[in-house]
Computed example of a mutant assay.
Amino acid sequence: MIELKQLTKTYGSKQKATTALSGVNLTVGKGEIFGVIGHSGAGKSTLIRCINLLERPTTGEVWVGGTELTSLRKRELQRQRSKIGMIFQHFNLLSSATVYNNIAFPLTLIGTPKAEIAKKVNELLALVGLEEHRNKYPAQLSGGQKQRVGIARALASDPDVLLCDEATSALDPQTTDSILKLLLDINRKFNLTILLITHEMNVIQTICDRVAVIHQGNIVEQGPVSQVFLKPKHQVTREFINHDSFAEAGLKLANSVQHPQWARLVRITFLGAKTYESVLSQVVRQTNVNFAILHGTISTIKEVPYGQLTVSFEGDASDVDRTLALLRERDLDVEVIG
């Protein structure tokens, strides 16, 4: 659905040139929720604006729905842009227009008959839960309600793709959760492809299928959220998910306790249904190995549960090795860390 090929964006010229994007390659599948995460200044806003050519790339190709956008003439580009909805961090609503008219605005611009506009806007008001606010103005709405108007407006032209530019960063945590749930419901109801950028790992963890990490204009890591979240490779990724903090907490606890010389310190990762199964106790009963749980966490990645434990195993070295092998046979990720 979306494919970026060797995308580069440079501002300025010659000695004063600043590179915002450097050879970015990215593919987003139909119906996928894809997240791009990065610190401020990493290039993520430039990236999302290049997809609908609000920013024209310096070099590279932007493919959306099988069409290469950078090669299009103005009129054809405008037609293709109608298939790409966008919501913004600060909502970008018309302050002098009602909720109804803000949502209707894209349809009004292209001369849609009033009856069709009314039907569409009423459907969207119901979808985003704003039927009772149709005649209010943006100043009368909360931040979450304003973003719901922005989402409804972006959906007015029945787009194939929805771009989200830090759509929740101006909202409180509870409102953020409600907006993410709405986006997930829209994705599932319409099979809408969603690409979002954020600096919040919670957003990625809650709704995204895959994620790319951008740093200094380069994609430094990408893959399924579970893979990137649970086994990060790049230091920037590790910072976002506090991976090192988790590891350090387990090691700190381990080092604060006296253990036999043959003790083995291990991090075990559970994913899916196994998170709630007694796998660890079942295995150690077979191997007669003692264990102590030093640190642990449990959460979800897009409604899929996961858990991580830092465990100290004590016993004969061969029995500990057998324990780790049996855990791996149960499709658990087992990493010896000390």
Rank of each mutant, 00 (worst) to 15 (best):
L294K: 11
S299H: 09
A97M: 13
N25R: 07
A317R: 14
V289G: 13
N135T: 09
G23Q: 15
D209R: 00
S169M: 03
D160R: 00
I194G: 01
K74Y: 12
L53I: 11
S96K: 09
E116Q: 15
I51E: 01
G338S: 11
D172A: 07
I87R: 05
L21K: 05
L109V: 04
K16C: 07
N288C: 00
F105T: 04
E248S: 09
L21M: 08
D172L: 06
L21S: 03
Q308D: 11
D158V: 04
V24L: 10
H259A: 09
L294G: 12
S142L: 10
K274H: 10
K16D: 15
W262G: 05
L109R: 07
E131F: 09
V289T: 14
V304E: 14
V236S: 13
N191E: 14
T59N: 10
N122Y: 04
L7S: 04
G223N: 05
D165Y: 03
A317Q: 15
S312W: 07
L253M: 15
N242Q: 14
V161L: 13
K30S: 14
S299L: 05
S95I: 07
L141H: 03
Q308G: 02
K136Y: 13
Q89G: 06
T8V: 08
R49P: 01
I179Y: 04
E314G: 08
G60I: 00
L107C: 09
G144R: 06
N202M: 05
N202L: 06
L326T: 10
R153D: 02
S13G: 12
R267C: 10
P232S: 07
R322H: 12
I33V: 14
L271D: 08
I33E: 05
I207T: 04
Y306F: 14
T297Y: 01
L54F: 05
V220G: 01
R81I: 11
F105E: 13
K120H: 03
V220A: 02
S281P: 09
G223E: 06
N25H: 10
D165I: 07
R210E: 10
P305V: 02
L77N: 12
D160C: 00
M1W: 05
F270H: 10
G65T: 04
L162M: 13
T70C: 12
H259Q: 11
L324Q: 12
Q282V: 06
V225E: 07
